[in-house]
């Protein structure tokens, strides 16, 4: 009897109370740091320094936020706007250029498309961060260091995005549909807008979420090029908040919490798509 039970594939085996207990603990551990960020962000200095440390939110959120937003040389308000500009610009551009290139690679026949696609995949393995020194010099030559352009330009189109779009468009759009539109006399760009874009909305949502999250959270390159200027992104501003000889935890974490909220909202709204995107990405 027991061997019968075991013959089931795991995905057909119902979860026991132990599975749910395990998952509950994991969820608690996943959520706790974010929750605790909120606790400190709402606490007074006394509550932060007490023993045991505060575990329940206090009532100082507004006080702490006011301090964060009015701190000299941190430009916190501006940093949030900058992060939003950068993330939206990068996301919009990534979606457009990656889906365009993905469409070309998946459905159009042109000389060398296999070799070119291979190159795209190859570039996926290049760790970009290692070129930061030279990138800084390049941006210096362009006069872009210290401006948002330095953060936006390198992210405008990604190899992963092109690859992801090619895979999706290859499956989602039958060749006949493209052929039919072409026989009707439609130009490529028109086919892109009227046939491709409507059919790949789910993939655009997934790639858009992944890109937005990655861009908003990017730290190293923005720190290098924007640190000490009047145009930090919110991650750079956070590092400023945490620097100095006397660091006020409740203020730092109030800032961290504000910079985290948009992403938590994004997870609540688009969590389903994000999960799907990551899981689909694994199989390709």
């Amino acid at each position: 009897m027991s061997s019968r039970l075991l013959s089931r594939a795991p995905q057909d085996t119902p979860g026991t109370w132990k599975s749910y207990l395990g998952l509950g603990v994991i969820l608690l551990v996943s959520a706790f740091p974010v929750y605790w960020m909120f606790v400190i962000a709402t606490s007074s200095d006394e509550a932060v320094m007490s023993s045991p440390p505060a575990l329940i939110p206090g009532d100082q959120l507004m006080v702490n936020l006011r301090e964060v937003f009015t701190m000299q040389d941190v430009f916190f308000t501006a940093s949030l706007i900058n992060s939003l500009i950068v993330s939206l610009a990068v996301t919009a551009s990534t979606l457009f250029f990656c889906s365009l290139a993905g469409f070309a690679f998946a459905k159009l026949r042109f000389k060398g498309h296999n070799v070119l696609m291979f190159i795209v995949i190859l570039t996926l393995t290049v760790p970009n961060q290692l070129g930061v020194v030279a990138l800084f010099i390049v941006m210096g030559e362009l006069g872009w260091n210290g401006t948002l352009l330095a953060v936006i330009a390198p992210g405008l189109v990604t190899a992963f995005g092109v690859f992801y779009m090619r895979q999706f468009i290859g499956h989602a759009i039958p060749d006949e549909l493209v052929e039919a539109a072409r026989i009707d006399g439609a130009l490529t760009m028109r086919i892109y807008w009227t046939v491709v874009v409507p059919a790949i909305r789910p993939a655009l949502a997934v790639l858009g979420l992944l890109t937005f999250v990655a861009t908003w959270n990017d730290f190293q390159w923005p720190l290098i090029t924007l640190n000490g200027t009047d145009y930090p992104t919110s991650m750079v501003a956070l590092s400023d908040l945490a620097s100095g000889n006397y660091v006020v935890y409740r203020r730092v974490l109030a800032g961290a919490f504000v910079a985290t909220v948009p992403l938590v909202v994004l997870l609540l709204v688009g969590g389903r798509q994000l999960v799907r995107g990551i899981m689909e990405g694994a199989l390709k």
């Binding site: 979860g15 599975s19 994991i26 959270n217 730290f219 956070l238 919490f257 992403l263 389903r272 999960v275």
Partner: peptide, 24 residues
């Protein structure tokens, strides 16, 4: 496993992934 609320659990464990590294 065959779980109740499978999507809920999956979204839940992604919270650390979307939280900015700088913030966490």
């Amino acid at each position: 496993r065959k779980l109740r609320g499978a999507t809920f659990w999956r979204i839940g464990i992604l919270l650390p992934y979307v939280t900015p590294v700088a913030a966490s």
